[in-house]
């Protein structure tokens, strides 16, 4: 085990896979000479050369489409889209091509492609550069979407994504890049489609993914101290396939749940989790499922407004307390 950043964990996973499999190559804007806008590809051009670390024209649909084609003939492209916001320019290639090819052509070709891209606000990058639109991809059959919240998961899920034979979008997060955690030195791929109970508890289930899964752990610790509330945290880790069983099992144990999400509330990931709980654990619920999400506005650029619009640890704490109050069993 080593204590490394989320950024380093991703870099390690990319490097390991490039060493292990010559078919793995990287493609995207600014990833070579500049080593990526967020330095995830640092050192890789120097080590592997421009054949395997391709700087591209500023054309997202172009390089995503090219990678899809390369994947169809057996290469394993790892596409960097500078932020998930720019993936909108490649939406047609991702949704109508990469995600469809295996199913629509009777399995004649697979698309073992990874799209790695950070989402998230909080960096004062403005409304068009701060979105959480992973839902767009998690919505599409034929896609897989993983959203690691810790350095260990970042490495494990990146390894798994590269070795997977379907298109996988790896959702990174701008505010997680510098977070540190223990990461196994050996390469052990994670399991795509498996959530993880990152903290066991008995009073309430908090379901989250990506940045909010880290926030969930943080508030669980605080609430244990301040209120004596024993929070169970379910980190989804994978948005498609979605591990409904782990969520349902947890709610059957705690009898209430709060979902934390960085996206917009209406039609968001939290709505799907609430529906999942309603389907699988309705009779176990002591209170309605609460969702904590971003204000439904284009994210402001001004720091105070941006902070106000994003879901915070305080928002989550309030939601947990109020949900427990609603169960009428809070001490």
């Amino acid at each position: 085990m080593s204590l490394i950043t989320y950024r380093q964990a991703l870099n390690d996973a990319l490097r390991s896979e490039m060493l292990r499999d010559e078919d793995v190559f990287l493609i995207g804007e600014e990833i070579g000479q500049f080593e990526g806008s967020y330095k995830i590809t640092a050192g890789l051009l120097a080590e592997f050369g421009p054949k395997r670390v391709r700087d591209t024209p500023i054309a997202e649909e172009g390089f995503t489409g090219a990678a899809t084609g390369a994947a169809m003939v057996g290469l394993r492209p790892v596409v960097e889209i500078m932020t998930i916001n720019f993936s909108l320019l490649a939406l047609d290639q991702i949704v109508n091509h990469a995600a469809k090819i295996y199913g629509m052509f009777g399995g004649q070709a697979r698309v073992p492609m990874v799209i790695r891209t950070p989402g998230g606000g909080g960096q004062q990058l403005g409304a068009t550069h701060s979105q959480n639109i992973e839902l767009f991809y998690a919505f599409v059959p034929g896609m897989k979407v993983v959203a690691p919240s810790s350095p260990a998961d970042a490495k494990a899920l990146m390894l798994a994504a590269i070795r997977d034979d379907d298109p996988v979008l790896v959702l990174e997060n701008l505010s997680l890049y510098n977070t540190k955690g223990e990461v196994p030195d050996e390469d052990v791929p994670g399991e795509i489609g498996r959530a993880k109970v990152t903290r066991e508890g008995s009073d309430i289930t908090v379901v989250a993914y990506s940045r909010m899964a880290a926030v969930a752990l943080e508030i669980a610790g605080k609430l244990a101290e301040s209120d004596g509330i024993d929070v169970e945290v379910v980190d989804l880790r994978s948005l498609r396939p979605l591990d409904r069983d782990t969520v349902i099992a947890s709610v059957k144990k705690t009898n209430c749940a709060v979902v934390l999400e960085d996206d917009w509330l209406t039609y968001g990931i939290g709505a799907e989790i609430a529906a999942t709980i309603s389907d699988g654990a309705f009779d176990w619920l002591d209170a309605p499922v609460r969702r904590v999400a971003m204000a439904e506005v284009p994210l402001p650029y001004a720091k105070p407004l941006e902070t106000a619009a994003l879901p915070s640890a305080d928002d989550a704490i309030t939601a947990v307390r109020e949900t427990l109050d609603a169960t009428a069993r809070r001490r």
């Binding site: 204000a295 439904e296 506005v297 105070p304 407004l305 106000a308 619009a309 309030t318």
Partner: peptide, 30 residues
């Protein structure tokens, strides 16, 4: 610094009920 209500007030010309409710909740919270 811009007032906090501006995240809501300068998005739609006439606003809408969902946003108005979110604004009221947020401002009373803040």
């Amino acid at each position: 610094d811009p007032p906090k209500e501006r995240i809501f007030s300068q998005v739609y010309e006439d606003g809408n009920p969902v946003l108005a409710a979110q604004r009221d909740t947020y401002l009373s919270y803040a």
